[in-house]
């Protein structure tokens, strides 16, 4: 089959409460090709995780994905899909890995039991076959003596090993898309790199597409083919990773890059984006980044249009010069 594996159009997720409506994901659109890795970056609270949860239909009450949104997985519309059908896709065609492996695995169930539950959710299989399949997945993520480890409990693994187990669970049913929500953030730097390489290899072997969520541009630059930068629930800039990171067009992307330790000059203070991320309940009209932006003027009081040039796109009234770097 050709065409993108995932096509997201105008994904919007709102929390309605008595206190008012908060839009945590606002008109997010992107496509993901088979085997492609899309990095989703942005500060804390920018809606990266919510985007992930919205895609797999797991937004907590009272949050809701607007019915005008469209998420097509392999040509099949997911928005508005009945829960039993959505459930059948979760963990089989599209799965998710979370940030903290200390929290995601059930401490009182053995690894084999937890993996068995995930297999049984999608396939009828004998216990022996399940064990074989689970052990295969563990072996694939680099856990030695996988079969013996099926009887082990999460506390018998180190943090990095636990994240491998979580990844093994995510790839158990060979999904077409994996949403990896900061899967390395909670780990030691050296282990981060291992996990990163491991996931990348798995995705390549299976042709699995991946959405790599991170607030760390450095990590994203090593895994992602393309990046999308989120701010206050919106994608403000997207494009091929090297192009976006070397020649950012949106001042927010520029700010994120400048605050990377590796980019600052030694001995100098790191550049910080002034101000703090806005409260989603009280966004300024127009460009949400304007209050923190050195280039903002009166024009920014109106929502900037989406500019698409070739593979790149941005939403800014005053995009930075292409040749700045």
């Amino acid at each position: 089959m050709t065409g993108p594996i995932l096509r997201v159009r105008d994904l919007t997720t709102r929390f309605r409460s008595r206190a008012g409506t908060v839009t945590v994901v606002d008109g997010v659109s992107f496509t993901l090709d088979r085997g492609e890795v899309l990095g989703l970056v942005g500060e804390s609270g920018s809606g990266k995780s919510m985007t992930g949860f919205s895609l797999i239909g797991l937004v907590d009450e009272p949050g809701r994905v607007e019915p005008t949104a469209s998420v097509e997985l392999d040509g099949r519309e997911l928005v508005g899909l009945a829960e039993p059908e959505m459930r059948a896709l979760r963990g089989r065609r599209i799965s998710m890995v979370f940030q903290d492996p200390m929290m995601t695995l059930n401490p009182v169930l053995s690894i084999g039991d937890q993996m068995g539950l995930v297999i049984a959710a999608h396939h009828r299989m004998s216990r022996a076959d399940m064990a074989t399949r689970a052990a295969e997945a563990l072996t694939r993520v680099g856990i030695p003596e996988a079969r013996a480890r099926l009887d082990a409990y999460p506390h018998q693994f180190s943090g990095g090993m636990r994240q491998r187990v979580a990844i093994a669970i995510a790839i158990l049913n060979h999904p077409a898309v994996i949403i990896a929500d900061e899967p390395t953030t909670a780990l030691d730097v050296s282990i981060q790199a291992q996990i990163l390489v491991e996931l990348q290899r798995l995705a390549r072997e299976d042709g699995t597409a991946m959405i790599w969520i991170s607030h760390d541009l450095a990590t994203v630059s090593t895994v992602a083919d393309r990046v999308a930068v989120m701010y206050a629930g919106r994608i403000v800039e997207h494009g091929p990773t090297t192009a976006v990171l070397s020649r950012p067009r949106h001042p927010y992307t520029r700010g994120l890059l400048d605050s990377l330790p590796s980019r600052g000059e030694p001995g100098h203070d790191l550049a910080q984006i002034p101000g703090a991320p806005p409260s989603l309940a009280a966004l300024p009209p127009g460009c949400a980044f304007a209050p923190r932006c050195g280039h903002a003027d009166a024009a920014c009081g109106v929502a900037p249009p989406a500019t698409e040039v070739g593979p790149r796109g941005w939403r800014c009234h005053h995009p930075l010069e292409e040749a700045r770097r």
């Binding site: 797999i56 089989r92 799965s95 979370f98 903290d100 995601t104 059930n106 999608h122 979580a166 995510a170």
Partner: peptide, 16 residues
């Protein structure tokens, strides 16, 4: 908890 979120994300039914 994340345990429940992760289990749901893996397609487990609410009953399970």
């Amino acid at each position: 908890s994340d345990v429940v979120k992760f289990a749901r994300a893996a397609g487990l039914s609410e009953w399970t």
